[in-house]
Amino acid sequence: MTLSNELVLDASNISVQFGGLLAVNDVSFNIPKKSVVSLIGPNGAGKTTFFNVLTGLYKPSEGKVMFGDREITDLPPHKIASIGLARTFQNIRLFGLMTAEENLLVAMHSHLKSGIASTILRTPRQRKEEKEALDTAREILDFVGIGKWSSEYARNLSYGDQRRLEVARALALKPEILLLDEPTAGMNPQESAVFVDFVHRVRDARDVAILLIEHDMSVVMSVSERITVLDRGEKIAEGTPEEIRSNQRVIEAYLGKAASEGRGK
């Protein structure tokens, strides 16, 4: 596995402070084009917080984020989303009372142009745009395998399908980078195995780089080209799955955590 050295995203020296807590401490991190990279670490390591910095939800107290050659550190979240950074949420956050396809259409908002007047008057351009958007939405739903539920309310879908719908909704943004926050949470081992294939299929067919936060080590090890390990806000290791597997600090971070809590992976 060789990573291209062209980067889609480059975050340097990011720190995030919550009151007295340094949730992310001077972390530098990049994403090569069309790669699948992972961010792992024990609970509370700062993974989601780091995600939230990339997507503009939190502004870092230090550091900057470059998307291609554009700085996005201070852009509002919706801008960052519309220029190509899409995410899913650790706790599913679908629009439960909207249908699956409506969820995708919402994500296409920034790519659609119709304004108030053309929507009220249903101008030919508006109709054409809506029809094309709907076709695209259905196509993406088919792609993730939930096409038959396109007009079902999101909250009525099964848990696994909701996870898929979250990915589909993120893909509807036509992103260059897809950020997945614990996408296999709550899946059984078979479902997780299917998910690994799915990630590769998304990357290849949709031309995106994928950043994955994941607790399931079998998924992480088989899907990632590069793994970055966070512990208590700090980056403690970065490398290929083989390197990470044998890294002493990583083992300690995980075992220490597991021993103190009496469980672990």
């Binding site: 979240p77 909207m98 908002h109």
Partner: peptide, 14 residues
């Protein structure tokens, strides 16, 4: 109305 944060993360300017 459903989820303001998710909406903004999906490119909707709040």
């Amino acid at each position: 109305r459903e989820d303001e944060l998710a909406a903004s993360m999906m490119g909707v300017p709040l």
